[in-house]
Each structure stands twice: as C-alpha cells, then as structure tokens.
C-alpha cells in the first residue's frame, strides 16, 4: 500500500539557470579554460602569493644556493692541484701567477675557456690546452714559443721567436750566446728571412756579428772589424752566396774593405777603408824597393 502515501513527484526539468550553466559548461572555450586556464591561474596565483614576501624569496634563494654549494663541494668535484707541462720554469711561474687559482677549489668554479684565453695572452705561450684529468688535477699542456733570435732595440735585448713575437728579454748578449742577433726597425717582422740569411752565412759563422734591418725592407750582414754586406731586397740569400763564393776564392773579407754592396746584382761594389789605398800604395812601394 505504498501508493497511499503519494510521494512528491520530482520535476525532471532543469531550472532555467541550471540549464544555462550546463550549456555554458559544454561550450568548447569554457571547457578549455576550465581544463587549462584555471589550473594555470591557480598555480600562478599561489606561487606569486608565496613569493610576494621578500624574506621568503630570500629564503628560497638561500636554500637553492646552499644545495648547490653542497653539491659542488663534494670531493668528487674538488680540484686539488695544477700540473703544467711543456713549459720552462719561468713560464710556468708566469702561468701560475696569471691563473690566480687557489687550490683546492671545485671544478664548477674553474672557467677553462677564460683561463685558456688568459694563458694565451702570455707572450711566451704559443698554444695551450687545459683539462681536468683523472685524479682531479687541472692539467695545462703548454706549447711554448721557442726564441730563435735576439733582437736588439733601443729598449734592450729581446728574445724573438720565428713568428716575430717577443718571448722575453735578456739583460746581456752573453746570456744567450747561441742565438744570432738582429737589429733595426722592422727586423722582428722578417725573422724567417733573417734565419735563412744566417744559415746561408754559416761559412762565416765565426765572423758574423748579426743582421741589421735597413729601411724596414732589406738586410745588412754585419761582420767583425766593421765589415758589412749590403744585401738586396730581392733574393738576399743568393746574393750572400755569391759574396761567400767570392770570399772563398779571393779571401775577400780578409782584405781591408769596409763593405760589399750587393744591392744591385749586376754591379757588386766594394768599398775600401779610408787608409787602405794609401797602405796599399805604401806596401807596394816597399815591395818594389825590396824587389829592386
């Protein structure tokens, strides 16, 4: 007899606003906004509300830094010493000076690129490669510039490599007796040519004092006793070889002459010393007298 208590019939129709709300919820733009926009806005709002406070922001940054430092300071990443290979003692000390690293330090703080640039700025260094090798050692492999000549300038004596770069200075000629000497403006820019001339001048090695660059275009070979060979701009080596051949045949440089001018290949010229002609006449007279 359930029918006696008549239940209140439920109206299945949605109210107008419920209907409108449901239609709104089925609109694609609204659905997208609810699915993507609202979570985004909530996240954004919560984050900015939390980070709005300066103290909290500092706290967060501090925590991040601490964690980072802790990680970087782990013994696996600590570099304990620096090994320099291929450099002479003073270059090595220069490198240690410019690198300015106080070990032990973490490898995250070592900027190898900048360090390489810094070391490359040292004049004595031609090339350098850096890496952190096993055992946490900063390995620096240096290729040094090899000084090949001494260059005498107004400021003093400098060591110059094959490419004309000043590698270092020396106080006296005697410290590097093994290197030939060049001088004059622009001498540094023609070091390879100078070396070729000097190797061609090997037969005169005992007498060669050095090379002088004249007018930044040609070389003078200077021998002892103030003798000079004036070499041309073009083909100086051949010109020198001609002079040496002449010397071997005629003992040219043993004579009392001040210079051999090879600047014009077709017309080599020699200049006698001031009194040489007079002496020559004198000795000739003496010979004549003796002969008679």
């Amino acid at each position: 007899m359930a029918q006696l208590t008549r239940p209140v019939r439920h109206d299945p129709a949605p109210s107008l606003w419920a209907y409108r709300l449901e239609r709104l919820m089925l609109t694609p733009a609204v659905r997208f906004f609810l699915r993507a926009g609202v979570p985004f806005l909530i996240t954004l709002g919560a984050t900015s509300a939390y980070l709005g406070d300066q103290d909290r922001r500092d706290q967060v940054l501090l925590t991040i830094h601490e964690l980072r430092d802790k990680f970087e300071m782990r013994p696996e990443f600590m570099v304990k010493l620096m090994a320099v290979e291929g450099a002479s003692a003073n270059v090595e000390s220069d490198i240690r000076e410019v690198a300015q690293l106080d070990f032990p330090m973490t490898s995250f703080d070592i900027d190898l690129d900048t360090l390489q640039q810094t070391i490359l700025e040292l004049p004595a260094v031609k090339d350098v490669s850096l890496f952190i090798r096993a055992g946490n050692i900063l390995q620096i492999n240096v290729i040094e510039r090899q000084p090949v000549v001494l260059w005498r300038s107004r400021d003093g004596l400098d060591l110059v490599d094959r490419e004309g770069v000043v590698v270092g200075g020396v106080s006296t000629r005697a410290t590097r007796e093994d290197l030939p000497l060049i001088a004059g403006d622009g001498a540094r820019d023609a070091v390879p040519e100078a070396l070729r001339i000097l190797s061609a001048a090997a037969p005169l090695k005992d007498r060669v004092r050095g090379l002088v660059r004249v007018g930044e275009r040609r070389w003078d070979l200077v021998l002892d006793r103030g003798q000079r060979v004036l070499l041309p701009v073009a083909k100086p080596v051949q010109a020198l070889e001609r002079v040496i051949a002449l010397d071997e045949a005629q003992q040219l440089f043993a004579r009392d002459l001040s210079s051999v001018d090879m600047r014009l290949a077709a017309r080599p010229t020699i200049r006698m010393n001031q009194d040489a002609v007079a002496h020559w006449w004198l000795s000739k007279d003496m010979l004549v007298e003796a002969g008679q």
Binding site: D11, A13, P14, Y19, E22, R23, L26, T27, P28
Partner: peptide, 18 residues
C-alpha cells in the same frame, strides 16, 4: 519549455557538446 529543456539537456549531455 521545461520539457524541451529536459530533452535538450539530456541529449547535450550524451553528445558532450553544446
């Protein structure tokens, strides 16, 4: 109007589109 609304709403719900 209520009856039409009921039918439309139920069909929309099934279709998941407005």
């Amino acid at each position: 109007e209520k009856a039409i609304r009921t039918a439309i709403q139920a069909a929309q719900k099934m279709a998941k589109v407005r």
